[in-house]
Design a protein around this nucleic acid. Structure first.
Length: 167
DNA sequence: GCCAACGTTGGC
DNA sequence: GCCAACGTTGGC
């Protein structure tokens, strides 16, 4: 039984289209430097888990597509790359601090904006909408997943997106 | 670019 | 192990 997640990405860095166009429609989710988010990837994510792909820090933040977890967690090479913005001098190569999963594109959808989500009671429980919440990876309940898929279909996404992640 | 919320760091 | 200072996130 898969779990569901919401993962934030700045579209300037990596948009849903970037994932769609990447080799194998897959990207390594590098750069997470928050322990709670890392722990979700390392301890709880399973291949095939559903991912709401969320665009953050942009003109229109919101859910922009559907993806799935495509690998187990493995070491994030960027933590040891001095030229990377994600370099972490405190991470010991013998015991890497940061891991990440791969994320695979399943569908690009019309944007379900943060603004729209705030107006709908079915989304009120989402961690994303909690005041002060800024975690880049948050768990999504099956009910929330179904509600988001329904809202995306209402906006014009193909109804088949409902079947992309096996329940 | 502002700022509130929150996580991390490091001195004690 | 407390907690003040600092850095980051991310919507607005």
């Amino acid at each position: 039984m898969p779990s569901y997640w919401l993962m934030k990405s700045e579209p300037d860095e990596c948009s849903i289209s970037d994932v769609a166009e990447a080799p194998g429609h897959k990207v390594p989710w590098i750069g997470v430097r928050n322990y709670q988010a890392r722990n979700f990837m390392r301890d709880q994510m399973r291949v095939g888990d559903g991912v709401l792909f969320y665009h953050s820090s942009c003109a229109e933040p919101g859910v922009a597509g559907i993806a799935e977890v495509a690998s187990a967690a493995y070491d994030d090479a960027s933590q040891f790359d001095k030229t990377s913005p994600y370099f972490d001098a405190r991470s010991d190569p013998a015991k890497p601090r940061w891991q990440h999963v791969d994320v695979k594109h399943l569908a690009t959808t019309p944007l379900l904006s943060l603004k729209a989500m705030r107006t709908r009671p079915e989304f009120a429980s989402m961690v994303l909408l909690k005041p002060g919440s800024r975690l880049s990876i948050t768990p999504v309940t099956p009910d929330e997943w179904v509600a988001v898929i329904a809202a995306l279909v209402e906006l014009g996404a193909k109804p088949s997106i409902a079947k992309l992640v096996k329940a």
